[in-house]
Each structure stands twice: as structure tokens, then as C-alpha cells.
């Protein structure tokens, strides 16, 4: 079966934790080379959605497909091997490994498997790409927060993902770091990568995303270009609450 052109499609996905419905019948798709933002107030189910795409959780019902083939039954490592790479909301580096080894980790087992010299060279290229090559042999504990995030991004890029998931990658950065961060994601966009990002920084959403999906209480309440979506009264209400709107 030929797929309909979307790199990733989410079809009627629901996730329940006991009695709580975290994600309710979500439906959206992401085209190739598209950068899509998932936004919404805290607790609206964005990260749960990301976790289901990357295989951390399985959907209670519904399905997620990549290039037309279903990935939502697969374990996380299999989804990674198919070419979905992710960063974590709270950056997760491997503390006892060096910066370079952290990035090699992404190159060895990922979508394309490399080993030895080849993996090392590739990791160096990725570190260079995020501007961290000078720190290759440093222990990760010596890195600043933005640098840790850059190394994590390099690790994900080292796996040559077809689809990149960035979970609040810009959160917790100070204004100068934020600029560097947005610059980096801009570069990814220029390379024509398929990216899904969960983000609270609205300026970044406006300047980076082709399209936005807005979630509130687990439901999709709007979808469209960032400018249109962010002026939608229902979206404003979701963010600010009824009384303030």
C-alpha cells in the first residue's frame, strides 16, 4: 500500500491513565519536510502525545502510522530504529559517558547503524553541527543546561531520524541561550527535516512552525498556521481561561 504522502499520521488516538483521559481521540498528520508545533496549556496532553509517538506509552486506542505503516504497537527501540528520534522534556544525558560517547550512543543503535571509527566521525560531525565539538571529551556534568540540550540534540541527530520530536526543547533557557536555540532549530528547518515540536515559547512557534496543532484537556481544539491559530478565540480561552477572555 502506498502511503498518502504524510510522514506521520495520528488516527483517533486516545490514552487513558486509569480514569483520567490524558489524550482524547487525537487526529493529525505531519507532511514530509514539515515542521509542526503541538501547543496548549499545561496538562493538556502534549507530552503524552509525544510519548505515544516515540513509543514510551502505547495508545489505549487508535493508531499512529509512519510513512503509511503502523508504529503504535511497536516498542520504543523499534520506533527509533524506524527513524523517529526524540529529545526529553528534562534533558537526559548519560552521566558516566563523555560528551562524544553520548552522541555515539545515538549513532550506533539508531536508524542507521554505525560502529567504530565511522560512528566516532559521525558523532564529531553532529557535535560540530550543534557547535559543541570543542567539548567532545568533557564529562557531561561540566556542561551548562543549554550545552546539555545541544548534546542531546546531537545524539538524536546522530541517529539520522526521519522524524524529529522536540519536547519543550527551548524551555528553561535564558534569553541569549534561547536565541542560540531558535537558531539551531531554524537550521534543522532549512535542512528540510520533518519535525514535531512541543513548545511554550510562542515567538519560536510563530517563526519556526509551518502549522500548529492546539490541544486542551487532551482534545485537539484547533489546527492551522501559527498566526491564525494563535488568534483563534477558543485557543485564547483555553490558555487564559473563560473569565479572563
Amino acid at each position: 500500500m502506498r502511503y498518502s504522502g504524510s510522514a506521520l499520521s495520528v488516527n483517533g488516538v486516545t490514552k487513558r491513565f486509569g480514569g483520567l483521559v490524558a489524550v482524547d481521540n487525537m487526529e493529525f498528520s505531519v507532511g514530509e519536510h514539515e515542521m509542526v508545533g503541538i501547543i496548549g496549556p499545561n496538562g493538556s496532553g502534549k507530552t503524552t502525545m509525544m510519548n505515544m509517538i516515540s513509543g514510551t506509552f502505547k495508545p489505549t486506542s487508535g493508531s499512529i502510522s509512519m510513512m503509511g505503516s503502523r508504529i503504535s504497537d511497536l516498542p520504543a527501540q523499534e520506533i527509533t530504529r524506524r527513524g523517529v528520534g526524540r529529545t526529553f522534556q528534562l534533558v537526559r544525558l548519560l552521566p558516566s559517558l563523555s560528551v562524544l560517547e553520548n552522541v555515539i550512543a545515538g549513532a550506533v543503535f539508531g536508524h542507521r547503524k554505525r560502529w567504530g571509527r565511522e560512528a566516532e566521525d559521525h558523532a564529531h560531525r553532529m557535535l560540530e553541527r550543534v557547535g559543541m565539538d570543542a567539548m567532545s571529551y568533557a564529562p557531561v556534568s561540566s556542561l551548562t543546561y543549554i550545552d546539555q540540550k545541544r548534546v542531546e540534540l546531537a545524539r538524536v541527530l546522530a541517529g539520522d531520524p526521519e522524524i524529529l520530536l522536540l519536547d519543550e526543547w527551548l524551555a528553561g533557557l535564558n534569553p541569549t541561550e534561547l536565541e542560540t536555540g531558535i537558531e539551531l532549530i531554524h537550521d534543522l528547518r532549512k535542512e528540510g527535516r520533518t519535525v514535531i515540536l512541543v513548545e511554550h515559547v510562542m515567538d519560536a512557534i510563530r517563526s519556526l512552525c509551518d502549522r500548529c496543532v492546539v490541544m486542551s484537556s487532551g482534545v485537539k481544539i484547533a489546527e492551522g498556521s501559527p498566526d491564525v491559530v494563535l488568534s483563534d478565540p477558543e485557543v485564547i480561552r483555553a490558555y487564559l481561561g473563560d473569565d479572563d477572555a
Binding site: G55, T56, Q77, T80, V108, R155
Partner: peptide, 24 residues
């Protein structure tokens, strides 16, 4: 070997290990 490297990653953080594609 790759297996040894995989185990070091697992010992550090199993969630990350899965998300870099290791069948932990």
C-alpha cells in the same frame, strides 16, 4: 562490542537506551 556499549547505556539510563534504539 556494540553489546557492551549498549549495556553501559542501559546502566546509565534505561529510557534513553530504548530511545536510541537499544533492545534493552
Amino acid at each position: 562490542s556494540r553489546l557492551g556499549f549498549a549495556l553501559r547505556i542501559i546502566g546509565n539510563d534505561e529510557t534513553v537506551a530504548r530511545h536510541v534504539g537499544i533492545n534493552t
